[in-house]
Design a protein around this nucleic acid. Structure first.
Lengths: 150, 150
DNA sequence: GGAATGTTCCCCACTTTTCCCCACTTGGCT
DNA sequence: AGCCAAGTGGGGAAAAGTGGGGAACATTCC
């Protein structure tokens, strides 16, 4: 699995292009074919999954029973926001307009490597979100008490 | 399987034609022969299945026990609305009048790729429908029984 | 039967968007 | 200083979406 880490503050140009940090580009498997599935996160941010990583997730989603209305709505929501993007010669991707609007992107973006995915945030949105979250060390205690996760 | 994804807002012209996004056209198998079976969805929307994908569904439907009146009605409803459409030279299909009325289409449509099918919605109808649905991340937790991923 | 009407299909023309390529700038390394 | 890798910006060709004309076919009405 690709292991992304670190953060960077880059710009979005007038064509909706965002450069992916070289460090993260180099972490891609050849099977990803320089491409990502881009989609929305649960929070107000954009997620990038390398193509090979996304394939696993999609296989899970496809197994859901679409004769159940709740599952149908869920699959619809996930796939609606998803799109495939490929790095251009300069290591950039074009972010779909709907996702730029969803994430509230303007000139600058915060790019964060999070294990199997890359997250793209508007810096302002991220700051507001981080503020709301409980204290980092408190959360850590709670998560690790459960023993198994992370 | 085709694996459609993404959304687009396009227009319906006076002849009932709707363009299918190039991204989704490119995802079609050659066996689909540039054709779809078009029918109504469970919600107030229109569904497009590539011909090859529809063949599998039809086989499933045909296996249902038609000595049960419920199954009989179900099969009748599906097949009653179904029709076959082919892409024209500009990548458009003609939507049957009955389905335009059913989905409440006017000038604009929202086209959504949902794995094995393409859905066509009236934007207003979709917004109303989406509002009723439970929160995305809540559903995700329930469906996958885990909240941390994605 | 034949004219009038309407529908379907194919083609052409226009506009907008997307994609690919080239060029410039900055900062780190030799 | 000079070179190279990385990020940023923009121009132009090609593709995608939109709208409409007109031939071919069918349908209805006289």
């Amino acid at each position: 699995m690709a292991s992304f880490k670190g953060q960077a503050e880059y710009s979005v140009d007038s064509k909706g292009r965002v450069a992916i940090p070289a460090r993260m580009r180099n972490a891609l498997n050849p099977e990803a074919n320089n491409s990502f599935t881009i989609t929305r996160g649960f929070e107000q941010c954009i997620l990038l999954f390398p193509l090979d990583e996304w394939a696993k997730r999609e296989a899970e989603i496809a197994r859901l029973n679409t004769y159940r209305s709740e599952a149908r709505g869920f699959v619809r929501t996930i796939m609606r926001w998803a799109d495939e993007v490929t790095l251009d010669g300069q290591g950039r991707i074009v972010v779909p307009k709907s996702l730029i609007a969803f994430a509230g992107l303007e000139d600058a973006v915060l790019i964060i490597g999070v294990l199997d995915r890359i997250e793209i945030w508007d810096p302002g949105v991220f700051a507001a979100q981080a503020e709301q979250e409980a204290d980092y060390s408190d959360v850590a205690e709670r998560i690790f008490e459960m023993g198994r996760d992370m």
